[in-house]
Amino acid sequence: MTASPPLIVTRPEPGNAATVERARAMGFEAFAMPLFDARPVDWTPPRAGDYDALLLTSAFAARLAGQGLAELASLPVHAVGTATARAAEAAGLTVAMTGSAGAQRLLDDMTSANIRNILWLCGQDRSEFSALDVAVVPLPCYAVDPVPPPAGWTELTAAPAILLAHSMRAARRISDLVGMRRDHLSLVAISPAVAAAAGTGWRDLAIAEQPDDVAILAQARALWHKGTK
């Protein structure tokens, strides 16, 4: 097999380093190019008894929520992706369900299970969900702020490369930064919604089979193999 194309990892830390390490172990020439920085924000925990479950769509909610998270420990957690589930467990929470097909599917499964009052610990910038017959109360406990592209971004994206988009905001930011001259670049999105946010015109646009790091890197490897044929 030929040498791997550069793999550009855009997610914030600490996830960026973990993805880069995993990618390099797979043989990729991986570059840490975080386009965002995550930070905690002030929040006040509500009364846990007012809710049936806690929805977490990002590991940042568990990592950055701080001491207030302990007041919600009685709520069963429904998490999107294994990384979020692991972060929740590390924070002392009990994970009742781990979604493997995105936030909307997980919310639909919660609705089917007659879970009606849901507290969503989220970021200040968040996606919207279709939540019929249930009450989903968003409570921001962290923020993810854009940062300037790291040194080397322009040179890396000027040549063929594979980029990873772990969120809709990342997909939009990548799209804005590379502009319309992108037919030499391949992008792997962690979900169909993220792929849609990336737009068109890529050399290849692939979607991870599950919303986790293992799946997104598996798709990147598939593109690598495709490029050697």
Rank of each mutant, 00 (worst) to 15 (best):
Val77Arg: 00
Asp133Asn: 15
Glu71Met: 14
Ala70Met: 11
Glu89Thr: 12
Ile118Gln: 02
Asn117Val: 06
Arg105Lys: 11
Ile118Asn: 01
Ala87Trp: 05
Thr82Pro: 08
Ala73His: 03
Ala83Lys: 08
Ser112Phe: 13
Asn117Tyr: 11
Ala91Thr: 02
Ser130Thr: 14
Val80Gln: 01
Arg63Lys: 13
Leu69Cys: 02
Asp125Thr: 11
Val95Gly: 05
Arg86Pro: 07
Cys122Gly: 04
Ser127Lys: 13
Cys122Phe: 06
Arg116His: 09
Ala79Glu: 01
Gly66Arg: 08
Gly66His: 07
Gly68Ala: 00
Ile118Arg: 06
Ala70Leu: 12
Gln124Val: 15
Ala85Met: 09
Ile115Tyr: 02
Gln124Glu: 14
Asn117Trp: 12
Ser112Met: 14
Val77Tyr: 07
Gly66Ala: 05
Arg105Cys: 07
His78Leu: 11
Ala103Val: 06
His78Gly: 09
Ala101Trp: 01
Met110Pro: 09
Val95His: 02
Val95Asp: 00
Val95Met: 04
Leu119Glu: 00
Ser100Gln: 10
Ala79Ile: 04
Arg126His: 13
Ala91Gln: 01
Gly92Arg: 00
Gln124Ser: 13
Ala103Phe: 12
Ala113Gln: 12
Asp109Pro: 10
Leu72Lys: 04
Ser130Ala: 15
Leu75Ser: 00
Leu72Tyr: 13
Met97Pro: 04
Ala90His: 09
